[in-house]
């Protein structure tokens, strides 16, 4: 419990790290209509693709220096000496980032989809999708950033983006499912299934990766 409080304290003071990605997401969602002819129909065609990719990019930006600071100032070493495992730390970090970045972005995506489609039921269905997918993306990019710790986030994104592609496909399919009003819950459960596997494996793998970096 204490570790959650401390990670909260750290992230809260780093406004740039959590507010930055949320604002970039906002700007991307504003940038989209500006590139399309201003017709309601045309706006709706590509809207969800842009939404999912914007969530993906914001999560990438959010996790940019998730371990870098702790690595550079020696915090990771102190933790390793004490507990010799980073899995708890990793899970807690992902959770705090999700609360600070993932949830605001999901709320924004609800607002934006309501604004674009003016369909409340549809937008309410978008909200859980973005909440779950943002958590999955966070986990994946955390792994990428652990791999490319102190080598810059581009490398991390390059090696983890392929992992996120199947999730994007599922998200695309679920939009079609919503529009045809078939099997929406099935997709939610599919995503939750992915999330539950990722949530267990990523902290373990990342813990090994960080140890390899410290060596």
């Amino acid at each position: 419990m204490k570790i959650i409080r401390l990670e909260f304290l750290k992230l809260k003071k780093k406004t740039r790290t959590w507010l930055g990605p949320v604002l970039v997401f906002w700007l991307m969602m504003i940038a989209y209509p500006l590139t399309v002819e201003f017709l309601q129909e045309k706006l709706e065609v590509g809207f969800f693709s842009v939404l999912w990719i914007a969530i993906l990019i914001s999560m990438m930006l959010a996790t940019e220096d998730i371990f870098l600071e702790d690595f550079n100032d020696g915090t990771l070493e102190q933790i390793m000496i004490k507990t010799s495992s980073f899995s708890t730390l990793v899970s807690v970090k992902i959770l705090t980032y999700w609360i600070f970045v993932g949830i605001p972005i999901s709320i924004l995506s609800f607002i934006f989809s309501f604004g674009t489609t003016e369909d409340l039921a549809l937008s309410l269905m978008i909200f859980p999708l973005s909440i779950i997918s943002s958590y999955i993306f966070l986990n994946l990019f955390v792994m990428g950033n652990a791999l490319s710790l102190n080598k810059g986030s581009v490398l991390g994104a390059l090696v983890t983006m392929p992992l996120a592609l199947p999730v994007l496909i599922v998200l695309g399919k679920s939009i079609i499912a919503i529009q045809l009003s078939i099997n929406y819950l099935g997709f939610i459960f599919l995503l939750l299934g992915c999330l539950s596997i990722i949530i267990v494996t990523v902290p373990l793998v990342v813990s090994y990766i960080i140890k390899a970096h410290l060596e």
Binding site: L147, V159, P162, L163, I169, V170, K173, Y208, H213
Partner: peptide
């Protein structure tokens, strides 16, 4: 260090390749 991290990355990718293949198959059917 590079060897160790690369090996982790390759293994994660190996798990993912069948998933990518399946999901892309599924994506293109529609």
């Amino acid at each position: 260090k590079a060897d160790k991290l690369l090996s982790w990355l390759v293994i994660v990718g190996a798990v993912n390749i069948p998933i990518i293949k399946k999901s892309v198959d599924w994506w293109s059917t529609l």
